[in-house]
Amino acid sequence: MSQTKDYRVSHLDALEAESIFVMREVMAEFERPVLLFSGGKDSIVMLRLAEKAFAPGRIPFPVMHVDTGHNFAEVLDYRDRRVAALGLNLVVASVQEAIDTGLVRELPDGTRNRIQTPVLLAAVEKYRFDALFGGARRDEEKARAKERMFSFRDEFGQWDPKNQRPELWALYNGRHHPGESIRVFPLSNWTELDIWHYIAKEQIPLPSIYYAHDREVVERGGMFYAVNEFIQLRDGESSQVRRVRYRTVGDASQTAAVLSEADTVEKVIDEVAATRITERGATRGDDKVSEAAMEDRKREGYF
């Protein structure tokens, strides 16, 4: 926090204070909160805010990873190191396990974004989580622009955009009946650039794939996908080694890299500030399905 005589508060300080307030509200008013932690940059920032909200105590809730099984090794490694360093309890909700037990069925195209929703909901039910912190931001996507800080979900985990509670001042209504839950989005008011400025300011380490590196990729529809166990070359395709970085980290079979020379946080900030394509538009095959893809997934219980 900056401390000056004129009581100035920078936008990052104001955003941080708001997010910390939201996290403390949840801890004070819910029985069993959990923080969704994927090892992606937004959830990493969220975890840092949780550390700050409860210092000098430990983060007083577990973290959960909905594991599609399609992971970047660097990210899984980062997840495990962070969880160990903070002494947190990690719950892994495994999509592979859910496929093996028949809870969900693998889709013909092999993508797992859509089928992770029932896996998430089953874990919520199993552990009786009543508040789930998610790292979604309103600037990401237009269905998210209408999301509340406290997003009410019925007993099926569904989002009904017409039936959300008005949010006035900083008075968040988290009341719910047994079986219902609240998704909480402490980063609602942050933008991609805010996240990066904060990572720089707080010197938060990230998985290496967020910074420019050489990688074997294949170009599909203007996007660069890493060639790995999840993405194999199709007939007529050829791979190439390019200097890339990831702007978002999701399912490894769905997330594309962008060409980049930005190998430091400062360079990434320059790049993000100058970029002309949205984060999800540049990197997420899953959001390109239809104009209302995110709206539909949220209604089903996705974040």
Binding site: A145, K146, A292
Partner: peptide, 18 residues
């Protein structure tokens, strides 16, 4: 934002922009 709004040409809720 939402499909219902585009279809009806209206805004049904508070939306936040940055």
């Amino acid at each position: 934002g939402l499909r219902a709004e585009r279809e009806q040409g209206i805004t049904i809720d508070v939306a936040y922009r940055y």
